[in-house]
Amino acid sequence: MAEVRFNSVFDIIGPVMVGPSSSHTAGATRIGRVARNIFGEQPEKVTIYLYGSFAKTYHGHGTDMALVGGILGMDPDDTDLRNSLKIAYEKGIKVGFVPKTDLTEHPNTTKIVLKNSEHKLTIVGESIGGGNIRIVEIDGFKVSLSMSHPTYVVIQNDVPGVVASVTDLLNREHINISTMTVRRNGKGSQAMMIIEVDEIRHSIETELKDLPNILSARYFE
């Protein structure tokens, strides 16, 4: 027995996805989608940096369309993915691609910068095979998110008591935390909380957002 990497029948049968490549298309869509969900709204400007194999073959594998489709909120099985560049243009979203030669830890890496007049988000993601992804950086916060467990990403003011109020809410809802990471840019500014939970339950995104000092809360299944 080498190593148990696959636990679910749906790791083998599935996902339903737009071709041609689970890593270059499905994984790329998921990275774009995570970026959009954390950003929380339609961006005005998108800059996509591509590294390694992504930089070399992004066009023919549809990685460009997949990333932009994800940023538009599409899933890997959305047949409109192939039209995503046109749709983004029609929505007035400015999209730029920058292939880079810098070496990255993983060959399929992208850095996505989303902007509108008020916000900016930078996210770095890796497509690690079979449509699976890892988010390794959010706004300069080093993270390691597989997005394969139900996950909450919460941005909050860096003041005392916020973490306690969040865990208290999870406790009341009987949601068990499997891992929890808290990062901040600097003392007293903004902080980020990434909470992976055990089981698929109803989302408590709205309740989280209503807590004091929470700036945004997103739920990923």
Partner: peptide
């Protein structure tokens, strides 16, 4: 062929081998 044309397929176990099953 649908896979190569960015059409919808079910990966079994991967996209590149989706035709067999």
């Amino acid at each position: 062929e649908v896979n190569a044309g960015m059409g919808l397929i079910c990966a079994t176990p991967t996209a590149g081998s989706a035709g067999v099953l």
